[in-house]
Protein backbone atom coordinates (compact mmCIF):
# COMPACT_ATOMS: atom_id res chain seq x y z
CA UNK A 1 0.00 0.00 0.00
CA UNK A 2 2.66 2.50 1.04
CA UNK A 3 4.84 1.12 -1.74
CA UNK A 4 2.79 3.17 -4.23
CA UNK A 5 4.14 6.35 -2.64
CA UNK A 6 7.82 5.34 -2.81
CA UNK A 7 8.30 6.54 -6.43
CA UNK A 8 6.93 9.92 -5.35
CA UNK A 9 9.44 9.99 -2.50
CA UNK A 10 12.24 9.25 -4.99
CA UNK A 11 11.04 12.11 -7.19
CA UNK A 12 10.78 14.45 -4.19
CA UNK A 13 14.34 13.68 -3.07
CA UNK A 14 15.71 14.25 -6.57
CA UNK A 15 13.72 17.50 -6.90
CA UNK A 16 15.14 18.67 -3.56
CA UNK A 17 18.62 17.82 -4.83
CA UNK A 18 17.98 19.84 -8.01
CA UNK A 19 16.79 22.87 -6.05
CA UNK A 20 19.83 22.57 -3.77
CA UNK A 21 22.19 22.43 -6.76
CA UNK A 22 20.56 25.49 -8.33
CA UNK A 23 20.94 27.50 -5.11
CA UNK A 24 24.52 26.25 -4.63
CA UNK A 25 25.46 27.23 -8.21
CA UNK A 26 24.41 30.80 -7.55
CA UNK A 27 26.39 30.88 -4.29
CA UNK A 28 29.52 29.42 -5.89
CA UNK A 29 29.79 31.51 -9.04
CA UNK A 30 28.06 34.77 -8.16
CA UNK A 31 30.23 37.69 -7.00
CA UNK A 32 29.48 39.12 -3.57
CA UNK A 33 30.27 42.72 -2.69
CA UNK A 34 27.55 43.82 -0.30
CA UNK A 35 27.40 47.47 0.61
CA UNK A 36 25.07 49.23 2.98
CA UNK A 37 23.16 50.81 0.11
CA UNK A 38 22.78 47.54 -1.75
CA UNK A 39 21.37 45.59 1.18
CA UNK A 40 18.62 48.10 1.87
CA UNK A 41 15.10 46.90 1.03
CA UNK A 42 14.27 47.92 -2.54
CA UNK A 43 11.83 50.77 -2.66
CA UNK A 44 12.30 52.16 -6.15
CA UNK A 45 15.62 53.72 -5.15
CA UNK A 46 14.23 55.79 -2.28
CA UNK A 47 15.23 55.36 1.37
CA UNK A 48 12.79 52.81 2.82
CA UNK A 49 10.05 54.35 4.94
CA UNK A 50 8.91 52.46 8.03
CA UNK A 51 9.37 48.78 8.81
CA UNK A 52 9.21 46.09 6.12
CA UNK A 53 6.76 43.84 7.88
CA UNK A 54 3.73 45.81 8.90
CA UNK A 55 0.09 45.31 9.81
CA UNK A 56 -2.11 43.88 7.10
CA UNK A 57 -5.80 44.69 6.52
CA UNK A 58 -7.94 42.30 8.56
CA UNK A 59 -9.83 41.40 5.39
CA UNK A 60 -7.10 39.03 4.27
CA UNK A 61 -7.52 37.13 7.53
CA UNK A 62 -11.26 36.94 6.96
CA UNK A 63 -10.68 35.49 3.48
CA UNK A 64 -8.39 32.85 4.99
CA UNK A 65 -11.02 31.85 7.57
CA UNK A 66 -13.74 31.66 4.90
CA UNK A 67 -11.41 29.61 2.74
CA UNK A 68 -10.90 27.04 5.49
CA UNK A 69 -14.67 26.73 6.00
CA UNK A 70 -15.52 26.30 2.33
CA UNK A 71 -12.50 24.15 1.53
CA UNK A 72 -13.60 21.61 4.14
CA UNK A 73 -17.01 21.55 2.44
CA UNK A 74 -15.30 20.90 -0.88
CA UNK A 75 -13.43 18.00 0.71
CA UNK A 76 -16.81 16.47 1.63
CA UNK A 77 -17.70 16.39 -2.06
CA UNK A 78 -14.80 14.08 -2.89
CA UNK A 79 -15.93 10.81 -1.25
CA UNK A 80 -19.52 11.57 -2.29
CA UNK A 81 -18.42 11.92 -5.92
CA UNK A 82 -16.56 8.59 -5.88
CA UNK A 83 -19.60 6.53 -4.79
CA UNK A 84 -22.22 8.74 -6.44
CA UNK A 85 -23.27 6.20 -9.11
CA UNK A 86 -24.10 3.67 -6.39
CA UNK A 87 -26.09 6.21 -4.37
CA UNK A 88 -28.19 7.40 -7.32
CA UNK A 89 -31.11 9.75 -6.62
CA UNK A 90 -30.53 9.41 -2.87
CA UNK A 91 -27.04 10.85 -3.31
CA UNK A 92 -28.33 13.81 -5.33
CA UNK A 93 -30.99 14.68 -2.74
CA UNK A 94 -28.49 14.34 0.09
CA UNK A 95 -26.10 16.69 -1.70
CA UNK A 96 -28.93 19.16 -2.42
CA UNK A 97 -29.67 19.33 1.32
CA UNK A 98 -25.97 19.72 2.08
CA UNK A 99 -25.61 22.53 -0.48
CA UNK A 100 -28.77 24.21 0.85
CA UNK A 101 -27.24 24.35 4.35
CA UNK A 102 -23.96 25.53 2.85
CA UNK A 103 -25.89 28.12 0.83
CA UNK A 104 -27.44 29.65 3.95
CA UNK A 105 -23.95 30.25 5.32
CA UNK A 106 -22.79 31.59 1.97
CA UNK A 107 -25.69 34.05 1.71
CA UNK A 108 -25.05 35.17 5.31
CA UNK A 109 -21.37 35.81 4.58
CA UNK A 110 -22.31 37.73 1.42
CA UNK A 111 -24.99 39.86 3.18
CA UNK A 112 -22.61 40.68 6.04
CA UNK A 113 -20.25 42.14 3.46
CA UNK A 114 -17.36 39.73 3.99
CA UNK A 115 -16.92 39.40 0.23
CA UNK A 116 -16.71 43.16 -0.42
CA UNK A 117 -13.39 44.94 -0.87
CA UNK A 118 -13.61 48.64 -0.12
Amino acid sequence: MLLEYLPIAVLLILALLLAGIVIALGHMFGPRHPTERKSMPYESGMRPIGPGTRRMPVHFYLVAVLFILFDIEVMFFLPWAVIYKKLGVFGLVEMLIFIAILGVGYVYVWKMGALEWE
Binding site: G26, H27, S39, M40, Y42, G52
Partner: peptide
Protein backbone atom coordinates in the same frame (compact mmCIF):
# COMPACT_ATOMS: atom_id res chain seq x y z
CA UNK B 1 23.89 34.87 -17.03
CA UNK B 2 21.81 34.31 -13.89
CA UNK B 3 24.42 31.92 -12.45
CA UNK B 4 27.06 34.66 -12.56
CA UNK B 5 24.84 37.37 -11.07
CA UNK B 6 25.38 38.79 -7.61
CA UNK B 7 22.82 37.55 -5.10
CA UNK B 8 21.68 40.12 -2.61
CA UNK B 9 20.08 39.35 0.72
CA UNK B 10 18.48 42.41 2.34
CA UNK B 11 20.11 43.44 5.62
CA UNK B 12 17.14 42.74 7.89
Amino acid sequence: KLIFKEELIPAK
